[in-house]
Design a protein around this nucleic acid. Structure first.
Lengths: 243, 243
DNA sequence: GGCCCGTGTCAATGCCATTGACATCGCCAT
DNA sequence: ATGGCGATGTCAATGGCATTGACACGGGCC
């Protein structure tokens, strides 16, 4: 009898539950293909185990989510590393662009993590050296250390906030998404030229942007980096005049 | 008997439920003082009525939330109007700054709305003329209409995303907030100068920024607007060379 | 061999949104 | 006036969710 039960268990789940296997399953559920919804019951089903078994490995859902964001950040860092040169670089703009996109893509691969993580942060050591490098790139470009650090924080908060914003929309059920999209299209279509000439003239472009969070993100990133360029020039000016 | 029941009802709630009275109560609950949590049971208690009575006025929670965001946007527009001159202005930077801050403050007065609204949009007519004006200001500054519209969208998405980011953190229970804060302080305190010289040098500033979302927002906004300035200069350059 | 701890199961609790069956009340048409 | 109908409010129930405590098993350590 026990043997049979053991057999069944084996059939249902590959091995005993571990932190790793649970995190894997959770990531699967958080991905768009996995349904993008994380709950203990779903997680239990995915693992072929009782939902509450997860509590033996994570104190509560918050701890689970923190671990998931940690993994996601790690993947972001890894993506960035793969796309960036090893040594220091003078192309600060490319560096920041790649970093922002990597973090964003890591989160967008599992929108539910982004949504659940909300504004939580893990202070994980995974990113520390990446941050140091990023600040170093900005410093080499001409920013004082403190201002370089400020710019790092700006870039990261900007990226995280924009990414959660997109992820939240992705996590809505398709019907709601469609309704929202439609609302905008209708609204811009109805604007009278005599009342709102400028909106009327740009209606097509605006509805296009509403369907396309990626393009909006790229635009914002580009504008933001133009702003960073201004800061760098300013800092260089100050330094030269001090010489 | 009926008279007595009527008396009791009157004592509990001021008048019959209306869309307006429900929205007021909901806004009260969404504010930080009101607990910052919106649920039908809380709403029922606040109204002195059965929680499910609300369903007679709103189809479901989503419709309620959409109405709340609509009100919030209206207040944002109103705040902006109060702080902006009536006629057209040449100070595009001040205009955009005031607009962004107004929207942000309207949402932060009721963080729960920001969190629940997620990336939902209402396409309400309340903001239309404000948007037209904003685009007009950018157009007068020298941007082609389409690009001015793009900049409007960038500013709004940036502001909304950053605001939800902050609101999400505000809506966490204080214990969790404290834990997150502490995590960062500890992390930056532990960094060795020899391993991470730049982070070590800017640790104080970075921990300061973590406690202060408003300052980060202002920094990002300033950088972003510097980027817009670049766009405007570029556009002016093109126009002049075309003359 | 006995004991304990790590792990998994099960049943129960309490919050949540939502629904359907009823009650009530005022208004309109007969 | 009255009969009924629609708008509004109440109540009980459902199903999903996170979380907890009591119990069961099994392997390693004494």
């Amino acid at each position: 009898m026990e043997a049979q039960v053991a057999e069944e268990s084996k059939a249902k789940r590959r091995a005993a539950l571990t932190r790793e296997s649970i995190l894997e399953a959770a990531l699967r559920l958080c991905s768009p293909e996995g349904g993008g919804q994380l709950s203990f019951s779903r997680l239990g089903k995915e693992l072929g185990a009782d939902p509450t078994a997860v509590y033996r490995h994570f104190r509560d859902k918050d701890e689970l989510i923190l671990a998931l964001t940690d993994l996601t950040i790690q993947e972001g860092v890894q993506l960035a590393r793969a796309a960036l040169p090893d040594g220091p670089s003078d192309d600060w703009r490319a560096w920041l662009t790649v970093t922002a996109r990597s973090v964003r893509n890591a989160y967008l691969a599992r929108p539910a993590v982004a949504v659940l993580a909300a504004a939580r942060t893990t202070a994980s050591p995974a990113e520390t050296s990446s941050v140091e490098e990023l600040i170093s790139v900005l410093h080499r470009a001409g920013l004082p250390v403190i201002e370089a650090a400020e710019c790092y924080r700006q870039l990261l908060d900007l990226t995280l906030a924009m990414t959660q914003y997109t992820a939240a929309f992705c996590s809505l059920d398709p019907a709601t998404q469609a309704k929202d999209d439609a609302a905008w299209a209708v609204k811009y279509g109805m604007l009278q030229e005599r009342d709102f000439p400028l909106l009327h003239a740009s209606a097509a472009r605006l509805t296009e942007l509403f369907r396309n969070d990626e393009e909006v993100f790229e635009l914002i990133l580009a504008t933001f980096l133009d702003g960073i360029a201004v800061r760098i020039e300013r800092a260089r000016g100050v330094r030269e005049s001090a010489d």
